[in-house]
Each structure stands twice: as structure tokens, then as C-alpha cells.
Measured scan of single mutants.
Amino acid sequence: WEITFERNGKRITVRTTDHRLLELFEKLWRNGADERELERLAEEINR
């Protein structure tokens, strides 16, 4: 799966075969987690 999240013109794409990681990322994104931390998390998930 691949999903791109966008907020205030900032886009972060997450790619993984584990839908649970996408759900976790989406919850953090929707709850306003720090964008720098989300970028780092996305990099780890995308590996």
C-alpha cells in the first residue's frame, strides 16, 4: 500500500505491506503529531 498524507502543503508518502503501520501513521497524522517526527517515521516505514 502507498498513501500520501498532506497538511498545509506538506506531503509525506508512506509505503508498506503492513496496513497496521499505515493506520498508526494516519492516527498520528490526524492527531497533529510533529511533522519532523512523522517524516522520520515515514522514512523508517518505507525501508
Rank of each mutant, 00 (worst) to 15 (best):
W1I: 12
W1L: 10
E2T: 02
I3T: 06
I3R: 11
I3H: 12
T4W: 06
T4C: 08
T4I: 13
T4G: 03
T4R: 02
F5C: 07
F5A: 03
F5L: 12
F5M: 06
E6D: 05
E6I: 10
R7M: 13
N8F: 03
N8D: 14
N8K: 04
N8R: 03
G9R: 01
G9E: 05
G9P: 00
G9L: 02
G9T: 02
G9F: 01
G9W: 00
K10V: 15
K10N: 09
K10Y: 06
K10F: 11
R11M: 11
R11A: 13
R11T: 13
R11W: 09
I12A: 01
I12F: 08
I12Q: 01
T13K: 07
T13P: 01
T13S: 07
T13A: 04
V14N: 00
V14Y: 01
V14L: 13
R15P: 01
T16C: 03
T16M: 05
T16L: 08
T16H: 10
T16F: 12
T16G: 11
T16R: 01
T17M: 09
T17Q: 11
T17G: 10
T17C: 08
D18V: 04
D18E: 07
D18C: 05
D18I: 04
H19D: 07
H19Q: 14
H19R: 12
H19S: 11
H19E: 11
H19K: 14
R20F: 13
R20D: 12
R20P: 05
R20M: 13
R20Y: 13
R20A: 14
R20L: 12
L21P: 00
L21Q: 09
L21G: 01
L21C: 07
L22Y: 06
L22W: 06
L22R: 05
E23S: 08
E23L: 11
E23P: 02
E23M: 09
L24P: 00
L24F: 12
L24I: 12
F25L: 08
F25T: 00
F25A: 01
E26D: 09
E26K: 06
E26I: 13
E26P: 00
E26S: 03
K27Y: 13
L28Q: 08
L28N: 07
L28I: 10
L28A: 15
W29Q: 07
W29V: 12
W29F: 14
R30D: 14
R30G: 13
R30Y: 15
R30P: 05
R30T: 11
N31D: 15
N31V: 05
N31W: 03
G32C: 06
G32L: 08
G32N: 07
G32Y: 05
G32D: 05
G32M: 08
A33H: 10
A33L: 10
D34M: 15
D34L: 15
D34N: 10
E35A: 11
E35Y: 15
R36T: 15
R36M: 15
R36K: 14
R36E: 14
R36S: 15
E37Y: 11
E37Q: 11
E37V: 14
E37C: 13
L38F: 03
L38V: 03
L38Q: 01
L38W: 11
L38Y: 03
L38S: 01
E39S: 09
E39Y: 05
R40K: 12
R40A: 10
R40P: 03
R40T: 11
R40G: 08
L41Q: 03
L41G: 00
L41N: 01
L41P: 00
A42P: 00
A42Y: 06
A42L: 12
E43H: 10
E43G: 08
E43S: 09
E43V: 08
E44G: 05
E44S: 12
E44M: 14
E44L: 14
I45W: 04
I45G: 02
I45Y: 03
I45T: 02
N46H: 07
N46G: 07
N46I: 10
R47S: 13
R47I: 10
R47G: 14
R47Y: 05
R47P: 03
R47M: 13
R47L: 11
R47T: 10
